[in-house]
Amino acid sequence: MHLTDFRILPVGDSAVSVEFGNRIDPGINAKVHTLCSLLSEKKIPGIADVIPTFCALLICYDPCVIRFGKLCEEIERITAAGLEGVSAPSRTFLISVCYGGEYGEDLPYVAEHAGLSEREVILRHCAPDYLIYMLGFLPGFSYLGGMDPTLETPRLSQPRQRIPAGSVGIGGNQTGLYPMDSPGGWRLIGRSPVRPYDPRRKEQILYRAGDKIRFVPIDEKQYLEIEAAATAGTYECPYLEGGRTQ
């Protein structure tokens, strides 16, 4: 992969944004994650934090350690050094979901809106591997790409006060799962017993931006089994190793 065609925008005196484009596109997003993992490998002194998003990487730095001009040089140097074969590793997490019923009370609405049966909505929703473009809004809240356009459903006009952790919803052309209890306006079609956020785990957030998610339909009995294991802290979410973000 070549990390060309980017621009560096100053963000105040302690951050820069490296922008690779202005579209939501898996190829552009892959460049963001590649630069992100390169930076974490190089461990440039003074870099305090990074935020990968759809098309840009925000790099927070301490200007008393590295000044703006020097940081830009470092970024240019890293990206210029041939990057063939370098790309962020990606995993595909298999997230079990119990669709419909009390777990997904808006499934009938989504089905009616799409002119499909509930079963067909479930099949189309769990067919793709969704790319996690970025995490934001709340810890572990994933912005996923790749939903079947026939499932697009407008958000609720009045957001719900409390959506339980693990809820799987559709909002406009986006889908995703709520990592923790929160208010929200997405249409809920199911719920996962998997905990995307668990403070007891070494990695508190199950996945990183650049990973993928596949939803796996389960029944209520399986839901309760996984939920019990997740509560006990013994559940390990399965994932497929390997692959590259692009």
Binding site: G12, S14, N22, I51, P52, T53, F54, A56, L58
Partner: peptide, 10 residues
Amino acid sequence: IISDGTVFGA
């Protein structure tokens, strides 16, 4: 804009 990262003071 297409969502991007934020800083204190933006």
